[in-house]
Structure formats: structure tokens, C-alpha cells
Design a protein around this nucleic acid. Structure first.
Lengths: 306, 306
DNA sequence: CTGAAAGCGCTTACAG
DNA sequence: CTGAAAGCGCTTACAG
């Protein structure tokens, strides 16, 4: 605490009480401060370089101006990147700071964080996705549903009617919802029922699983990946089976990692800008209005794999 | 603060003062507490579910038990993953919590974090890498130097003597050090001087740049990537030029992302386990001993690209 | 229009 | 062996 300048210092320098300093600096409503006092305090604060002590404020107010985002390891895609950026920016704009937690969020670790940080909020990444609390009508405008529809729609446009969706074998939480929306899209588009394809992590097993899938559903001509990685795994499996991509099997990724472009064949994918989603989360967590937020719609990047 | 049980509550329940509760629960040295009192306090704390309020403690002690790690977007590789895991685990073991900050760390944002969180420490990812403060003799035992040596060494073992290192055109901070160690390794191994290859981000430009590199240094037969992504970009450029990988040009990645295995040809790479590095950082930041930490040595995963 | 006082939950000299 | 008191830096009823 050595060199720290506190409210007391500002009060002393401007000849008022700490209470008044607090009123001025926080623009407390319902207080009538004379313009001269206000000026004096503001100037003193500035010239002393006063900056409020977050911890003290947090103790008094019951929670800090920190927001914790819990997120897994999956930060590769464009969705997460832009989401985190939007969330962080918007929070900063309202004088909060975003801190990310990458460990698994258990009841214990959540409690530990609560106790250590007293954050304003703890956000689980993609929670709104998972719970269906989307910005708009079920997410078909600019949410997960619309992104999934863009992915399946691209395949349909290219003439595919029998489509599978590749999901990692350990079935991440989001996969249920993605699958659900994909099925619905296939129905809406009059395609054959969408086929789930649970793809193993090992290269050898993946090839075998794909072989089975195609044996049982010979007419499948295209696969939509849960994310880029899943799609690339599918491509590799197809190649390992001696199939040509996209001639024998078209594959599209999801969420535009940098790796899709570098693959051979280069991966088509869905590009999602989630900055507005991040901002939305920030605002709702702070209890602010969200009406003026406009969401980018997703677009397909077509490369060589479809 | 509604349901919170505080030290006062524990004190009341066990019939002692808050001071005594603090002494007992923190095992304060130089205090002689009767075993019975100690028992009583500990039991009361347990049965009430008391857990210290981090913010209050932080206010009193001057800093919180939070450690902030500043890290860019690059969380794909095995190094970062294991580093973050080790750091987080070790911190948790010593009752601290790790929070990650992904935005660019400017003087301003650093100050904002200091003021909002009063963290025990702010760590910049790979700082020790950058400054050469390695665990051992300059990092040749188990640090960056040894990892780079493993990468170049693999190429040398496969008979390559004229090697380039591919670095992203925007030259990330770490690249200087990597290049330095690679050059030194090439010298130690009696290879031709290592050639830096600054590779553009766009696919077309990358191919053109690689073409130039090979025109000017026709005898180059292998490229070591700054990271997997750089290596994959190089592979793609080579393929775009009609070269065969590895026959015409061998390429090895660095830091084992999940994407290397999925590429065609599958990418050889260096696998680094940095959990001990993470633990080391945690310990030194907390001022604890680090002698018993044993670091895994890196190993090469050979696949199809070398 | 402004100030004195209490209190958020903890730790640590100091006193007994 | 244990407790009363001060104080970390802030905010907010309450009083004037």
C-alpha cells in the first residue's frame, strides 16, 4: 500500500471530507454538491493520480468489478475469439474487468472463486447457446440455430440430400443442441433425416467408424463437422479409406479456425462473428439494456472440401 | 453478504474472540493456543462451514490470493495447455486461484487489473522463455533451447543439412529466441547456417515466398516451423507449388496441436510437456522452493511430413 | 450543501 | 493463554 493515494489524500488536498470525495467521484444521485467543490475535488483527484481501490470497494459493496468467464480449452475457433473480445471490451467500457478461468468448473472451484474474488458474475461459456436463451427467436435469426442452418444449407445448395453430422465421441455438451438444430434444418429443407456420426479420437478408429457409417448408409454424400477439428478428422478418415474429398464425400467445418485453410483439401467452414454475443452477455450481466446490439449473421467460407 | 458466515460467527459459536479464531485457523506462529480451544474453534469453523472472505483478507494484507496470467490467443499447443494446467494446479494447492487475461496487456490494462484485483502476481506467459531465465543451464537441459534442439536434431538425423526455420511474418516475440537457439543447434551439429524464412499469412503469398526461398537457396531440403500452424502453412505452400512433402521438402512442426495429426501429410512435431514449468512459475511467484520439480524432456512425434 | 460515524471481514501489534 | 482495539479504503445512511 506504500505509494497508494487514497480517498483520504484527495479529501485532504481539496479540503473536504472523504464522503464528499466519494459523492463527487461516483456522481452519486440525490446529492447536491456545489460546482466549485466538485471542480476542486476532481482536480485534486486528477493531479494526485487517484484511482479507486477495487478491493476496498468490493468489500464495501459486496462484490468486485470482476467478471469471471469459465471456458474450456477450445479457444481456437472464431466464435470463442470474438466472443471473448466482445465480452472483455464491453466489460472494460463499463469499468469491469474480464478474467478467464480454464480449469474445469466444479462446485468446489466455483466456491473457491466466489470466496477469493467475489466476482460480479461467473459466466459459463456458451451457456446461452446451451440453454436456448438466444438473442432472438430461438436463435434462428442470429444464434446457434442460424449458424447450424448455414452449415447444413450450404451442403443442400451443393446438391447433397443425405447428410451426417460428425460429433466427437465424448459428446461435448453443445453437441446435443447442434444435432437438434441440424435435424430440424434437414427436415425444413426436405432432406433425408440427418444421421449422427460419433467419431472416435484415434485416427485408426475414426477411419473404421467412417467405413461402417458409409456401409450402413451408403447414400451419404456429405458430412457437417461439429467444429473444424471434427471435420478435419473426418476428412483424414475419408482420405485414409481412399475416398476423394469432396468428390466421394464432401465435408464442411464449423467456426473457422486458422487450420482449416491449411488443410489439404482446404476446409470449407462456417464463419461466425460472436462479438455481439459477447457484448450482449456483458450487458445483461451488468443489468444494462441490450436492444441496440446488432449481430453479424454467419457466412460460409467455401474452400476445397465441398 | 446475506448468508455468509464470518469469523465473528465462529468466534461466537466457540466462545472466543475473533482474534483467536484467526490465530487458530491460520496457524499463526508464535501463538500458544491451548489444544482444547484450538479443537473447539476448528470444530465450530467446520460445522458452520466457515470459509475466509478473500476480499476482506486482501484488503488487510495488501494483495489478494489471485494470480493473473496474461496470455495471447495461442492456447492450442501442448505447451500452453500443460503450462496452464500445472500453474493452476500448483496455485490451487497453495490456496491461490489462477485467472487468465487474454486481452493485450497494455500499461493501462495492467493498472486496471492491479487496481481491481490487487493480485499476488501478474505473470506474462512464456516470460521466462523470452528472458532466458530457464530452469537450468540456459534451457539446454529442459527449456526452450532443448526443445528447439530436438526439432532441428530430428531433421539432422533424417539426413538434412540445409534447413530453414519458418517464422510468421509478423515475428512474434518468441521467434527471435527460437531462431537464435536453432542457429546455435545447427552450428553445434555442423550443419549449414540456418536460414530464416518469414512466411506471409495469406496462402498465395506464402507459396510465392517459399518459391523465392527455394530459388535463392536451392539446396534447402527441410523446414522447421515456429509452431505447428507455421509448419502447416509451409506444407500447404509446398503442396501449392507442386512439391512433394516430405520427398522434396520435409517439414516439422512444434508444440503438438491436435491439428497436426489431421493434416495431409500428417505433421511430425515436437511434443512438450510444460506442466513442471507451470508449477515452477507458481512456486517462484509464491516464494516457495522449486528444487524438487522434475521437468519432462521433449520428444519428437514422427508422422508423415519428415 | 457537507461531515462524522459506522461498518464490510479480516489480521496483528499490544496489553494483560 | 487470550482479548480489545486499530485499521486496510471505501460507501452510505444519518445528522446538521
Amino acid at each position: 500500500m506504500a505509494g497508494r493515494v487514497s480517498m483520504r489524500d484527495v479529501a485532504a488536498a481539496s479540503g473536504v471530507s472523504p464522503a464528499t470525495v466519494s459523492f463527487v467521484l461516483n456522481n452519486v444521485a440525490g446529492q447536491t454538491i456545489s460546482p466549485t467543490t466538485r471542480k476542486r475535488v476532481e482536480e485534486a483527484a486528477r493531479s494526485l493520480g487517484y484511482v479507486p481501490h477495487g478491493i476496498a470497494r468490493a468489500l464495501r459493496e459486496g462484490s468486485s468489478r470482476i467478471v469471471v468467464l469459465n471456458i474450456g480449452q477450445n479457444l481456437e475457433g472464431n466464435y470463442s475469439q470474438t466472443y471473448v473480445r466482445g465480452l472483455g471490451d464491453e466489460l472494460a467500457r463499463h469499468e469491469h474487468v474480464l478474467l478467464v478461468q480454464h480449469q474445469e468448473l466444479t462446485d468446489d472451484s466455483l466456491k473457491q472463486i466466489q470466496d477469493a474474488v467475489s466476482p460480479r458474475a461467473v459466466i459459463r461459456f456458451a451457456q446461452r447457446y446451451l440453454t436456448g436463451h438466444e438473442l432472438d427467436d430461438g436463435g434462428w435469426q442470429s444464434g446457434l440455430a442460424s449458424h447450424t442452418a448455414a452449415q447444413i444449407g450450404h451442403l443442400a445448395e451443393r446438391g447433397h440430400t443425405r447428410i451426417a453430422m460428425a460429433i466427437p465421441e465424448d459428446r461435448p455438451p453443445l453437441s446435443t443442441v447442434r444435432l437438434h438444430f441440424a435435424e430440424e434444418t434437414a427436415r425444413n429443407l426436405g432432406l433425408a433425416p440427418l444421421q449422427p456420426f460419433f467419431i472416435p479420437a484415434s485416427r485408426r478408429d475414426a477411419a473404421r467408424a467412417l467405413e461402417e457409417l458409409l456401409a450402413e448408409n451408403g447414400s451419404i454424400t456429405a458430412v457437417a463437422g461439429f467444429v473444424d477439428e471434427t471435420a478435419l478428422r473426418t476428412v483424414k478418415a475419408a482420405l485414409d479409406l481412399g475416398l476423394r474429398v469432396p468428390e466421394d464425400l464432401a465435408v464442411i467445418g464449423y467456426d473457422a479456425t486458422p487450420y482449416g485453410e491449411l488443410a489439404t483439401p482446404a476446409l470449407s467452414t462456417v464463419h461466425i462473428d460472436a462479438e455481439a454475443h459477447g457484448r450482449h452477455t456483458a450487458r445483461s450481466v451488468l443489468g444494462l439494456a441490450v436492444d441496440d446490439l446488432v449481430t453479424q449473421t454467419a457466412h460460409v467460407i467455401q474452400r476445397e472440401s465441398t
